[in-house]
Write a protein that binds this DNA or RNA. Structure first.
Length: 453
DNA sequence: GCATGATCATGC
DNA sequence: GCATGATCATGC
């Protein structure tokens, strides 16, 4: 199968991840329409190899790391099992890569070969069941994962403990019990194999970097927890996410912000409703508790934004994104930029419309799912690259105006005028971000709502 | 009424 | 204390 025939775009990380998400809640038999794992060689490593071959259509003969080389993502398929108490735990450690004793002593943790791999992984957890054919294992979690910041100090320490032992000529004395999360686990086809080490003549067992099973148990629990799915009632099993969400919202169409605040218990004596009202009621309406994330939105990478449409259909405000770093902007091509990533994901707009009779009063009117068309992504790219030029030329203060680009513009986005960021030419300039133009949003919203019956 | 600079409010 | 979604303020 050539690149263009693949059911996902191998050059687009979002596409790879979105395609992978479709595995959640399924078995490989269901997801890839496979009857049996034909090649007995592929039975070993069972599900992981089969997913690569039958679902991602990777050629097992031309395997090179990382698995999704084009986007730098490493695929890891790993089992959980049920304990006697019925709790899910990692069945085994997650092996990342072999340790080369001769090279590792010259590495730094931050730029190590381990970090290169463990930095950006596509983790797939399935539920192991000794009585099942691997094709029928339940695939429970799919997540793009990197070592979380809060775990980095311990993992770095673990890495250094191992590497320092090799530097001391003690590779033959390495043990999994030396470390907490990350370990150097033995890995070889038979127990007599030995490798050379740089600072001792004693041959050492081959070992690989691996996250311990206990650590993986917690990683999986963390990915599971804090996520709630939208409950589907009878007859809704097959509904699209959009239909499901709109169905839930529909009873509240027509309510003002104040009324919604009261309906959901967010009204505050003598004060405006909270600014994050939209986020709060979205969760309430979809039946997800306040502290949880909406699983479907997280998995599909949907960003929720409020749009207050004035009587003329124009949003009262433009839509902002996080501020950008001037130095990063200059160095990063559009395809690899945060802006590209943000504009490549789907949005759910919660639409409020200004009441005809009561100026300034906005009522919940509709929801709309939107993704920027490719042609407009090119327009956004022009905005991005023009801003890059200006910063390179020493004019970061000179924003790309909304009059200069059909889709996007640049504007300040700090806490105040003193909230600045360093430019490549050494002068601090107020923090700025990219915004979606109001006129552009008006057109896009009209396209969506007019296409509806 | 719009463009753009500036700031608020909340959550982590 | 900062990042971020949301909103305000000013001038043309």
């Amino acid at each position: 199968m050539t690149d263009t025939e693949l059911p996902y775009n191998i050059h687009d990380a979002n596409s790879v991840v979105e395609y992978a998400f479709e595995l959640i809640g399924k078995t490989l038999r269901e997801a890839a329409n496979v009857d049996e794992i034909a090649d007995p060689k592929r039975r070993k490593g069972s599900l992981g190899n089969a997913i690569e071959y039958y679902y991602f259509h990777m050629d097992p003969n031309s395997r090179s790391a990382p698995d999704f080389e084009e986007v730098g993502i490493e695929l890891k398929v790993t089992p959980r099992k049920l304990t006697k108490k019925g709790e899910r735990v990692a069945k085994e450690r997650l092996v990342i890569s072999m340790i080369n004793y001769m090279d590792v002593v010259n590495e730094e943790f931050e730029t190590s070969s381990l970090m290169h791999k463990a930095d950006d992984m596509l983790l797939i957890f399935y539920l192991y069941d000794k009585d099942k054919d691997p094709l029928d294992y339940d695939i429970e979690i799919v997540a793009r994962w990197g070592i979380p910041d809060e775990d980095l100090p311990i993992i770095k320490k673990d890495w250094e403990t191992v590497v320092n032992k090799v530097r001391a000529g003690l590779a033959h004395e390495l043990s999994g019990s030396d470390t907490l999360y990350l370990e150097a686990c033995t890995k070889s086809s038979n127990s007599s194999v030995r490798r050379e080490q740089p600072f001792s003549d004693i041959p050492a067992k081959p070992r690989a970097w691996a996250f311990k099973a206990s650590y993986m148990t917690n990683v999986a629990a963390g990915l599971d927890e804090g996520m709630q799915s939208i409950e589907r009632k009878q007859g809704e099993e097959e509904a699209s996410l959009f239909d499901l969400v709109r169905e839930r919202f529909a009873p509240y169409f027509g309510q003002t912000e104040q009324e919604l605040a009261e309906t959901f218990g967010y009204a505050r004596e003598g004060k405006r409703p909270p600014k994050n009202l939209c986020a709060l009621i979205t969760k309430k309406i979809l039946g997800v508790t306040e502290d949880a994330k909406i699983a479907e939105f997280e998995k599909a990478g949907i960003q929720t934004k409020t749009l207050r449409l004035q009587k003329n259909g124009r949003p009262k405000e433009a839509v902002s994104f996080p501020y950008f770093d001037y130095c990063e902007l200059v160095e990063t091509p559009f395809e690899e930029s945060d802006l590209h990533e943000q504009l490549s994901t789907r949005f759910m707009f919660v639409l409020f419309r200004e009441s005809e009779e009561e100026p300034g009063v906005y009522r919940l009117a509709d929801i709309a799912f939107w993704q920027m068309p490719d042609a407009d992504l090119e327009e956004a790219q022009a905005c991005y690259e023009e801003m890059q030029r200006r910063v390179r030329d020493g004019h970061a203060e000179d924003s790309v105006k909304s009059s200069e680009n059909r889709c996007c513009h640049v504007r300040p986005h700090g806490r105040n005028a003193q909230d600045t960021n360093m430019t490549p030419y050494g002068v601090p300039v107020i923090k700025k971000c990219f915004w979606l133009n109001q006129a552009y949003l008006k057109d896009e919203i009209e396209k969506i709502t007019q296409n509806r019956s």
